[in-house]
């Protein structure tokens, strides 16, 4: 079953970080991706620019509306995601616990609904 980890954190918690800190952070994530790949459970991941650079589009009311910024202003914002392929939620939780993002923020784990529709 595919599970996606949505990585939420408060950007203010990272305000103090300099280039070296980010380089170190990148290494930590690299190691985690390596472990996922070696275990054969890795599907996809990405690391996103901050939410204040977001652009939101909708056609919901029949016309195209584009908005500068995220659709919702929240303290904790989506910073990236991982998708992995493991048998069940217990296994997904075991890997989410090892994810570096868990140390600084929250990880929302969602199972793929592709097979159920």
């Amino acid at each position: 079953m595919r599970y996606t980890f949505l990585l939420y954190s408060n950007p203010a918690d990272f305000a103090h970080m300099g280039p070296e800190d980010w380089a170190k952070e990148k290494e930590v994530y690299g190691a985690y991706i390596g472990a996922l790949q070696e275990a054969g459970v890795f599907v996809d991941t990405d690391w996103l620019h901050p939410a204040d650079t977001a652009t939101t589009i909708t056609l919901k009311d029949g016309e195209k509306r584009i908005q500068d910024g995220p659709f919702a202003e929240t303290q904790e914002t989506l910073g990236g995601f991982f998708t992995i392929d493991v048998p069940d939620l217990d296994a997904a939780l075991a890997w989410a616990e090892k994810c570096p993002a868990a140390k600084h923020g929250k990880i929302e784990i969602r199972a793929s609904a592709m097979d159920s529709v």
Partner: peptide, 12 residues
């Protein structure tokens, strides 16, 4: 089940 829960590569 054990393999699915194991996040340490040598143990896996």
């Amino acid at each position: 089940k054990a393999i699915s829960l194991c996040t340490d590569i040598p143990s896996r």
